[in-house]
Every structure is written in C-alpha cells, then in structure tokens.
Design a protein around this nucleic acid. Structure first.
Lengths: 337, 337
DNA sequence: CTGTTAGCGCATTCAG
DNA sequence: CTGAATGCGCTAACAG
C-alpha cells in the first residue's frame, strides 16, 4: 500500500509538497510538480479516503436509510442517489433501518451517522416519525426524502413532492374518462395509511366531482393490491375504475381483474402512482402518475451534501417540493364503459 | 462531537484506559471501569469508525460492485448482502461499476477499493472479465459472486452456484411434463450470451432427451423476453414450452403468450431461473428454479470478510459452489398439450 | 515556492 | 492496573 510518505521519499520532497501537488493547490513549481506526479503515477498511488476524512473532518460517504431495498421504488431511488452522490465525489452507504424482526436498529444508525458518513438521508415513506427523530444522533446532518405529507413533516429538512397533487391527477384522469364508480385502494401498514396525502388528494378531487370514494386499505405490495381488488370487484355495482395510491397496488389490481375475467382497460380501468419501472413493463402497461423519482433523488442527495458542507444551508424545517407529478397514459385506463 | 479524549478528561483517566474499558479488554479496575462507562453513556459517546479504521488498519465497510441496482435480482442480493455484512459489523457501500455512458469507472473503484472499503464484492454476471481484473487495484481483497461459469472463472476467489444444474433442472421439469417442442430463451448482452452455463445445462439435458433446442438470444429483461417470445410463438409448429434462462425473460414470455392469445400454462408452459420475488407475484406465477440468492449473498460476504481478515484464507482461485438449485413449481407450467 | 509542525480520533505497545 | 508515547495517512496552518 503506497502512501503519501513513500512517494515523498522517492521524489525527494516533503509530504506536504506531495499533498499540494496532488490536490492541485498550485503552490508548487512546475518541475517538482511533474516529478511528484510521475512518481505517484508510477507507484500507483491512491490517497486513503479514511485518512483524508479524518484529517479534514469530512467523510466521503453519505448513508441512505430505508426500510426495504428490494422494493422496486427504493432500489430505483438508491440507484439515482448513488449517481448523484458520485457526481459530488461521495459514496453511498445503504442501511436498512430495521432489523430482521422489524424493530428500528438505532445502534447501527448511531455508528454510521455523522462519522462514517457525513450525513443521513432518510427515505421516509415507511419509517415512523418518532422513531426517526430519536434514531439519528443529534447534530448529524439529516435530510428526509419522500415524506408523504409535506404539510406536516418532522422538524428536519425535507425533500419531497406534492403527493396530494399526484393523487388529484390520478383521480382527475379517471373522472375525465367518465368514470363514476371509482374504488380507491390505499397503501397501509397495519391499519395506518402510509399514503395519506395521495389519498386525500384523490378523494378530495373525487368528492369535488360528486363521486364518493371510500378507500380500502391494504399492505403496499402486488399481493396486497390483488387481495384488495378481489374484494372490491365483488361489489355490486362493480367499480369501473380503481385508483391505487401506489403502482404495486395497481399492478395487483390488474392481476385481480384478470382473474375475475374482467378486461383491462375495457371493463376496468386502473391507475397507479409513482411510475416505477415495472409499471411500463406490465401487460397491460399501467397508467400512472410519474413523480420523477430521479429528480427527487438528485435533490435529496444535493440537499444533504449542501447541509454537510454548510450546516446552516437549510433551515431545520426547510421544505423542498421537487418536480410536478405528471400523468403517464398507458394501457390500463380507458373511457368508462 | 464527543471524543475519547473528552470522556477521558471528565472521567479523570487517560485515553488508553477509556479505550480499554470500552473495548472490554479487561485490564481495568471495576470502579474506574464503571465510572468511564457512566461518563461515556452520559455524553452519548460514539467511537469514530474512521479513526478506528485508520488506527487498526481495518475498514468497517465492504464495497459491492454491480451493473444495475434497479434490477430486482441485484437489489435482492444487495439487501441480503447488507444484512450479512451487518452481522459482522460492516457497512455496505454500493457502487455502480459503470458510468451512465456504460464504460467502467475505474477511478471510482480505485478510490473505494481497499481503503474506504476493506474489500470488494463483484457481482459478476454482467461485468466483463477483462474489465474486472483491471479495474480492481492489485492486492485488494476481492470476491467474485454469481459468476456464470464456475468451470471458467477469473483468477479471483469466486462464490457462485451450479448454473449448469439450474439449467438442467428447468429442462428436466419441462421434459417430465411431456414437452418436446421447447424453445430456449437466453439472456445476452449484444450478441454474447450472459447465461452460458444455464444455457448449456439446459440444452445438454434437452439433447439427452432427443429434443433439439436452438436458443434465442435476447437482452435480459421483461421487454426482451416479450420481444423474443413474440417471434418464437409465430413458429410452426409452435413450441409448447419456453425455457428462459432468467425470470425476467420468462415473465416477458408469459406476457407475450397473453398477447398471442395463448393460455399459460394450458397451451404454453414457461419456466424461468433465479426465483426473484417478482416470479411469485406474477399471474400466472412463474415456475422457476430457485438458486437461493440469500445463501449466496451470505456466503459471498462471509468469504470476502474472511479474506479481509486473513488474506490467505482463500486461494487466489478458490471456488465455492453454494447451495443446490431447486425447482419451484408454480402456475406457469403444466402437462404438455 | 518548499519543508516543518501539528493535529484528526483512536488503538496499541511499553514503562511505571 | 494505569498513563504516556507512538503511529495510522493525510491536511492545514505556519515558517523558512
């Protein structure tokens, strides 16, 4: 493992000079500079990020905390977050907040937060509010991403989108297609809605149009959407459309329709929210509301890095609404029958 | 940020003593010990992993390098890898090997390998062989996971499974169901097969049974499977079964069958390989060969950590075949018509 | 322009 | 049983 000192010795200069050369600080003569570079090159020198971090008090990583990497949304987010981090010369540490048994692992967070990583990015949509606040040690730069209800977020800088608007768009689309019997399917954890804002946005719009929408709560997964839709489709009169607050639920609903022998979109329209990659890959492809995951991931990472660089860059309760949800028309919705 | 020294000062002892207490080395008297602990507790002391790493020359992270986190297989693997790493007190750094333009990002790997992270875990199935060897700096503990062809792996410790056997199992299943016109759909990158061993295993078994199987190569994705199957299902006589070397391809094939108006599994059987979570969530659910991703992720991480702890723990070309592929019968396969 | 001097926070000898 | 000393690899003032 060749170190700064090694190359200093060989180049016949001091460590400081090597450091200056390699960091392009311009205090060094062209000749020495060239020599140092040559030696560094020849020895395949790579600075040790740990040592750099220790010396200048700035970790080269950020930690991303979430509940389930295997969820297609989170993995997509992680992918974009990693790219955004890398653009600013940082690495991404992935951390499951929860232990296998489901409880929050605070010791783990404590070890990583603010030391190994310069800050923490919390993907909020699944993580409980009180837990969050207590799990991250005080004073560690923290940004909350994807918090459902912008109007009521914890006292942390928060980067998210207008979920209410997303819900409204989905409802609007179905109404515009002439649907009146619209069932709403909302993601929940136990008996608590996880998609409150989308749900509110959707039902508000529906009520505006004189359509009343009770919502069915279900676990946010394909299986959950399937189960719930199977029940919903038994109702008489049957809904002509299902509005799912998340794509996985919507995909499950499409499957249920298939099993019930209903043609999508001819006999049943289904719309989701998020636009995970899977939405486009399903048959029929899912009409959904694109929330622009990439921009949010970018903005979240950038906000966190800004906060790390400049602890007062963001107010403790700063709120950034990123992007504007937009409808993506695919094959799962059509004119009401 | 409270440091070791802070608590030493307050507890009225030296830093070494604090370290000894907190690391349970037993050299310290019960009373001082208790006092130190109390102070550490009260001040919310958390050791700085960076400093620890620098001092004892051991990074608390490992890097996982792969081509696409959004791929359901990789995200599943990453999830399990993170758990395995955490069990041994390490964090997981995720690294996309490729830049957005597709070329390998060696500078990035160089920065992380062996310094920020103690070692590198490379998910091989998509990464080119020559690239791999050159991208990771010499002397950095490296483990290759999921390499397709165990018989011909690069000169790196390698943890994988018997993909040939997985292919054989899939073929065997279809043969046992009485299928004779079996189309094989194999993942490829450009015109190079990515799933060579599975393909060989499958075609070998098919040939054994007197069934000849030319393979169709396609990009390994749902869309790719869909495209390829659309073509295959035009043939006369039509195949009664499709063997896909990966689940995404299989899922695409099922979709294509649907569009061609063929009932799965009555008129067309489809079998995949891997058993990603999506396989179980599709309708019909995909019959597939489970490769036990979790055990492989565990074994890979453990092998890497062993290698880091003991550089000679594994031979430079050690090969570990983990688990035994097993067929998971679901709803996409049935007796040949 | 270059080298010397201090740390960054911690772990580990080695004397006391 | 304890504490002072040393070093991990690097950066950032300083002096020269």
């Amino acid at each position: 493992m060749t170190t700064l000192r090694d190359i200093a010795l060989i180049a016949g200069v001091s460590g400081a000079t090597v450091s200056n050369v390699l960091r392009n600080r311009g205090f060094v003569g062209a000749e020495t500079s060239a020599r140092v570079r040559e030696v560094a090159q020849r020895l395949g020198y790579r600075p040790n990020p740990m040592a750099q971090a220790l010396a200048n008090g700035r970790a080269p990583t950020i930690a991303m905390v979430f509940s389930d990497l295997a969820n297609p949304f989170y993995s997509m987010f992680a992918l974009e977050a990693e790219r955004a981090a890398r653009r600013r010369d940082h690495f991404l540490l992935v951390c499951h907040a929860a232990k296998p048994d489901g409880t929050l692992d605070t010791a783990y967070l404590g070890a990583v937060a603010g030391r190994l990583s310069g800050g923490v990015l919390i993907l909020g949509s699944d993580l409980g509010r009180a837990d969050l606040l207590s799990a991250v040690p005080n004073g560690v730069p923290t940004v909350l991403a994807m918090w459902e209800d912008a109007a009521d977020h914890p006292s942390l800088p928060c980067v998210t989108l207008d979920f209410r608007e997303a819900g409204r768009l989905a409802a609007d689309h179905l109404l515009a297609l002439g649907h009146r019997r619209i069932a709403v399917l909302a993601g929940a954890r136990g008996d608590r809605v996880s998609h409150g804002a989308r749900l509110e946005g959707a039902t508000a719009r529906l009520r505006e149009a004189g359509v009343l929408g009770g919502a069915t709560l279900e676990e946010d997964s394909i299986g959950g959407g399937h189960r719930a839709a199977m029940r919903l489709l038994e109702a008489e009169p049957r809904p002509t459309a299902i509005l799912a607050t998340n794509d996985l639920l919507g995909i499950g609903a499409i499957q249920a329709a298939g099993e019930r022998g209903l043609a999508v979109p001819r006999e049943l329209s289904v719309v989701g929210i998020t636009d995970i990659w899977l939405a486009a890959e399903m048959r029929p492809a899912l009409t959904t509301v694109d929330i622009d995951t990439r921009r949010i991931a970018d903005a979240s990472v950038n906000a966190l890095l800004d906060l790390i660089a400049e602890p007062d860059a963001l107010a403790r309760d700063a709120l950034r609404i990123v992007g504007r949800p937009s409808l993506v028309r695919r094959a799962s919705t059509a004119q009401a029958p």
